[in-house]
Amino acid sequence: MSSAGIDKVRDWILGRHPDRTELAADVDLIESRLVDSLAFVELVYTIEDAAGIEIDFDAIDIEDFQTLATIEKAFFA
């Protein structure tokens, strides 16, 4: 069962892509161009808001943001 936090992140991504109705946890968000470089900053902001944390942009490990599964493990586990 996914957390409310990761559901918020999923909803934000789906909201940017009205052509999609679902997003599997293992879809690569960057390779599939669901999140581009500008949207990446918004994604970080969305995660911060949903998780109630602050993310140091200079210390980001891009692998944590690769899929919904990695985001959930890194920020909502």
Binding site: L38, V41, E42, V44, Y45, D49, F57
Partner: peptide
């Protein structure tokens, strides 16, 4: 960069994102 993306980033509902850029 489309100018429409800037409008999105300036949308108050998005939050203070532009300051990150």
């Amino acid at each position: 960069v489309p100018l429409s993306r800037v409008s999105e980033l300036l949308d108050p509902e998005v939050g203070p994102v532009l300051g990150r850029f």
